[in-house]
């Protein structure tokens, strides 16, 4: 466990060490309230949830709801004070992890991005830089900004619940917790010299050489001509996004889908399929050593 301790005790990684229990706690809190609210929803609908949140208010007593000022804002002031004090003490106690002068001829091994970008860096193992570094981040930002426009589910607003927002919660858990945080944790704890995989309890062996024999998707099926491979790859990618059409056909009568409409459904389906394609491609790479699914003379996917 000594290697794990070495990783954890780096000043760089303190935020990650803090993030794991903090986020686990938040998720646990959400899960508890969501379960309770789900039960209330089953009994009496949203009204039951809201009255439970406000507390049982007997007739004649004053409304327990309070104003933002001063009741919320002064809690926020306290929080701001706490954060300021913590940051001050942190900055005194723990020195910034400065490293040596940058030298392009001698880069550190492993070269790790700041912790919040480690997930993107991990994607570089599976995708070309233009996808991992440009396309996917753009799509993430785009996807986050379209949420208000494609979220047509009015239910479950203002309280935690699972039953009413299964899709939204599942997408969040998968995309943020599973992919984003998961990849950050992988990059922090499981990547060592040469960006090779080391379990957190394994010592880093700098001399470890991992064979890098890869092949393309078409090779798996024995397609050797370049145009054939190109066409096969294009078909695969098109087929993958074609799943959106299938889903539309199967789900078009559901009320929520009907309310979304075709164009919004297309956007959601595209973003969702793209997100799902990330772990799929990772599985292909790790399981079948597939480097590219679609090869063309101009770009490779």
């Amino acid at each position: 466990m000594e290697p794990l301790w070495r990783i954890l005790s780096q000043p760089d990684n303190i935020p990650i060490a803090l993030m794991v229990p903090l986020f686990a706690g938040l998720l646990g809190f959400w899960w508890r309230t969501a379960r309770r609210n789900d039960a209330l929803l089953a009994q009496g609908g949203e009204a039951a949830v809201r009255s439970a949140m406000d507390g049982a208010v007997p007739e004649g007593t004053p409304d327990p709801r309070v104003h933002t000022w001063p009741y919320l804002l002064r809690i926020e002031l306290i929080a701001a004070l706490v954060v300021t004090v913590v940051l001050l003490v942190w900055s005194i106690v723990i020195d910034a992890p400065l490293e040596q002068l940058a030298d392009a001829a001698r880069t550190p091994n492993p070269s790790k991005a700041p912790w919040y970008f480690l997930g993107l860096q991990e994607l570089l193992v599976y995708f070309d830089p233009w996808i991992a570094g440009v396309l996917l981040p753009v799509l993430i930002i785009f996807g986050l900004s379209v949420i208000p426009y494609v979220d047509v589910n009015p239910a479950g607003s203002g309280f935690h619940a699972w039953r009413q927002r299964r899709f939204a919660v599942a997408v969040f858990l998968f995309g943020f917790v599973g992919l984003w945080l998961g990849l950050i944790l992988v990059g922090t704890f499981c990547r060592g010299p040469g960006w090779n995989w080391f379990w957190p309890w394994e010592a880093w062996d700098r001399a470890r050489a991992v064979p890098m024999a890869t092949r393309n998707w078409a090779d798996v099926f024995g397609i050797s001509s370049s145009s054939g491979a190109s066409a096969f790859g294009a078909l695969t990618v098109l087929g993958w996004y074609g799943l959106g059409l299938v889903a539309w056909w199967r789900l078009r009568h559901r009320p929520l889908v009907a309310r979304l409409g075709t164009s919004r459904f297309a956007v959601v389906a595209f973003l969702l399929l793209t997100m799902l394609s990330v772990p799929l491609k990772m599985a292909l790479r790790l399981g079948l050593s597939v480097k590219y699914v679609w090869t063309t003379p101009w770009f490779n996917v």
């Binding site: 002064r74 002031l77 306290i78 004070l81 706490v82 300021t84 004090v85 001050l88 003490v89 900055s91 005194i92």
Partner: peptide, 24 residues
């Protein structure tokens, strides 16, 4: 109470600031 928390935290902030200066 809010008042108590505010006073305690302000004192902590003051001490942290003094610590910074002393440290420097």
């Amino acid at each position: 109470s809010f008042r108590g928390a505010f006073v305690a935290l302000s004192a902590a902030l003051f001490l942290a600031t003094v610590w910074t200066m002393w440290d420097e």
